[in-house]
Design a protein around this nucleic acid. Structure first.
Lengths: 198, 198
DNA sequence: TAAAAAACCGACCGACCATTCGGTTGGTTT
DNA sequence: AAACCAACCGAATGGTCGGTCGGTTTTTTA
């Protein structure tokens, strides 16, 4: 593997574990075996290094969900929403370091002054919210989802799912067993009312 | 105001705005007018200072919700849950710096090695989850809430509400208009099914 | 009012920080 | 073989970090 790639990989772990200020270039140098100067040969500065990582995360997430929507075919809108919830939790488990990064505060702080950073974050959240919203709209056409406000419901749904993913990484509570309850909740909040529904 | 109190107040803002590593004792000294040595006269070290702040936040939250449960009287369990949701969002708006602190990653990182820190965080989340759970259990007795698993539903509800509160502080999206949708969702996920319910 | 205690000060310390820079490779182009 | 180049190195730099310490002021106690 090229040194540059090794730096990007190690820095993802380092930033996610220790935050922006806590991640030191000296430690990154030690982790990768790259000399201090080498890091600054490939990246203008620490912020540029982080933006490269965040840009990569954006690409991965957008591509992954794009692929997901193209490959799978769903019986209806509700099915799409449930699938997206499940897929999101699965992805968060696979890309732990990347999601931990997104769950930290410093990217959003940087976004206040850095438009590139802000753009990356907005792209990611737009993509995720759009998927939930698309599912809801589709479900309202095919009758599987009730007439709830689409965008708002997508945001509430997202904050719910992402909160559970966060519970897992913070490890204050074991949220792994919550998956079934989450899907049930999802059905209740979006589903059309039927006689006898609990 | 005593210097010690001024330090605690300013440090709360500083930690919440810049994180643990980003908050420097020199800047804290500048903000408060207290000399460097004075800070370390009142607090053993930086970590001790933070633990004092977190301990204060714990006390405030526990007392506030205790008071809330004692003062108000609710018509039923569902009413209690809805009130708690509303109260939580209101409190998060009033104690912005404190909630921003709780929404950062470093307290949970510190909790991995520091049992005092871990204890404070667990107390806070236990308190919050207990209120939702109590409301659900009470609602199941008085018939206002369906037979959902109480603790799990409380966790999902909490992660939903806290996610919305987080949306507000991150200011990526305007989540202020989500309050009504949130209460509606809350009713759907917990409420007993009625004929004609949407 | 004298003594003891607590609050407070700011210069100082070594460690560490992000970043720079002059120089060395090894491979490609001319 | 000369010129070029990106990748890489590691010592050096100026600045900031958390924390210490000896001494002064203010408050409390006896």
């Amino acid at each position: 593997m090229s040194k540059k790639n090794a730096i990007l990989l190690a820095a993802t772990d380092l930033f996610s574990q220790k935050g922006y200020n806590g991640a030191s270039m000296a430690e990154l140098s030690r982790m990768t075996g790259a000399a201090g100067g080498t890091i600054f040969h490939h990246f203008r500065n620490k912020e540029d290094l982080f933006l490269n990582i965040l840009g990569g995360i954006k690409e991965t997430i957008l591509d992954t969900f794009d692929q997901y929507l193209r490959d799978e075919n769903f019986t209806n809108g509700m099915d799409l929403v449930e699938g997206a919830v499940s897929f999101y939790l699965q992805l968060a488990g696979q890309m732990q370091a990347q999601f931990l990064l997104l769950h930290r505060h410093f990217p959003y702080k940087m976004a206040e002054t850095n438009p590139i950073c802000r753009n990356y974050l907005e792209s990611i959240y737009d993509c995720l919210l759009d998927i939930f919203e698309k599912g809801i709209v589709r479900g309202q056409k095919d009758g599987s989802i009730a007439r709830v406000p689409a965008r708002q419901s997508a945001m509430i749904l997202f904050s719910m799912v992402d909160g559970i993913a966060r519970f897992n990484t913070y490890q204050i509570y074991d949220a792994g067993a919550l998956y079934n309850d989450l899907i049930t909740t999802c059905r209740k909040m979006l589903g059309v009312a039927k006689a006898g529904q609990a």
